[in-house]
């Protein structure tokens, strides 16, 4: 992994909410075009990590870099798909997806003062949105004119992903996007996410660097984490902090980071293929009775040993 190929980098990141220590000395590097899953027990700070990359939370200590630049707030280069409230309820499906292009490419004065130019541009944005929605399986003209409340949960999340993707973000953040969906819908959306891998590969092969997206997924489903990602990162408060000189848990840290097998969207995933990895993640991150050194299951980023006590 060269410095240029790193898209997201977290260096000695700590996060506290008042007296509550949430994250402790997190060091991570995500490769450009990579697909990373963050897994861990409930309340371990996975989403906190994600929101620090997004820019809505600031680390108490340490730095978060995206594309080499310090994250200092929200940016159009980092897209987000939430579990809930992913779409603007007052816009149709088509308008929801075209919304980002409008906001990004035009300003209020432009839209007010140059209505004809705006109308032409608007048509182009809607065409782009239509193409993208067709790509995610929502090209039906009737669906395009629906409002979010008229869609199923799975359709909404497809629209939300299209809405984020139309911006061609450097980083796409997915915060348990399939958490509220039934199994069949979840699997269908998982195939759609796997398609992003294929799209990334194609963009890389064709030299379209701007079209390569780095995806970070937060999920509590270990199978899903392994299935979708090419790297799995386990974050957990279950590590041997006592042996390292702490009286109480100083926060969750990275206890697992290993590559995962890459599946193709049109292939049936062989869940047996990652049984071993699943067990390993459970041992490393989920089992509160097994408190091991955090570096035990870390492979693709070695410089992430916790700092000396009191560093944060």
């Amino acid at each position: 992994m060269t410095e240029r190929s790193i898209m997201v980098s977290m260096q000695h990141v700590h996060k506290r909410f008042g007296p509550k220590h949430v994250l402790f000395d997190v060091n991570l590097r995500f490769e450009r075009g990579g697909f990373v899953s963050l897994v861990g027990p409930s309340g371990c700070g996975k989403s906190t990590l994600l929101y620090m990359i997004l820019g809505t939370l600031k680390p108490t200590a340490g730095v978060v870099l995206v594309g080499g630049a310090l994250v200092q707030g929200l940016s159009r280069n980092r897209g987000i798909v939430y579990q809930h409230y992913s779409l603007f309820p007052h816009l149709t499906v088509l308008e929801n997806v075209a919304f980002g292009r409008m906001l990004d490419a035009t300003s209020i004065p432009f839209r007010v003062l140059r209505p004809f130019a705006w109308r032409a541009l608007r048509k182009r944005h809607l065409d782009e949105a239509r193409d993208l929605l067709t790509h995610v399986g929502l090209g039906d003209p009737q669906t395009l004119q629906c409002y979010p409340h008229q869609l199923s949960g799975g359709m909404r999340q497809r629209v939300a992903i299209a809405q984020a993707m139309i911006m061609k973000p450097s980083v796409l953040l997915l915060d348990e996007p399939f958490g509220a969906l039934d199994q069949a819908t979840r699997e269908s959306l998982q195939r759609m996410i796997l398609q992003l891998h294929a799209d990334n590969e194609r963009a890389r092969a064709e030299g379209r660097q701007d079209d390569i997206v780095t995806v970070v997924l937060v999920t509590h489903e270990i199978d899903e984490a392994i299935l979708l990602a090419d790297k799995v990162v386990g974050v957990s408060q279950y590590w041997n902090w006592r042996e390292q000189g702490y009286d109480r848990c100083p926060g969750a840290t990275v206890v697992y980071s290993k590559p995962a097998p890459i599946f193709k969207p049109d292939h049936e995933a062989q869940h047996s293929a990652f049984v071993e990895q699943r067990q390993e993640i459970i041992r490393a991150a989920m089992d509160e009775t097994v408190l091991q050194p955090p570096e035990m299951y870390r492979t693709f980023w070695k410089g992430d040993a916790p700092t000396a006590r009191g560093a944060a």
Partner: peptide, 9 residues
């Protein structure tokens, strides 16, 4: 927050 990620002022 999403609006800001979409480039809104």
């Amino acid at each position: 927050q999403k609006s800001y990620t979409l480039g809104a002022s």
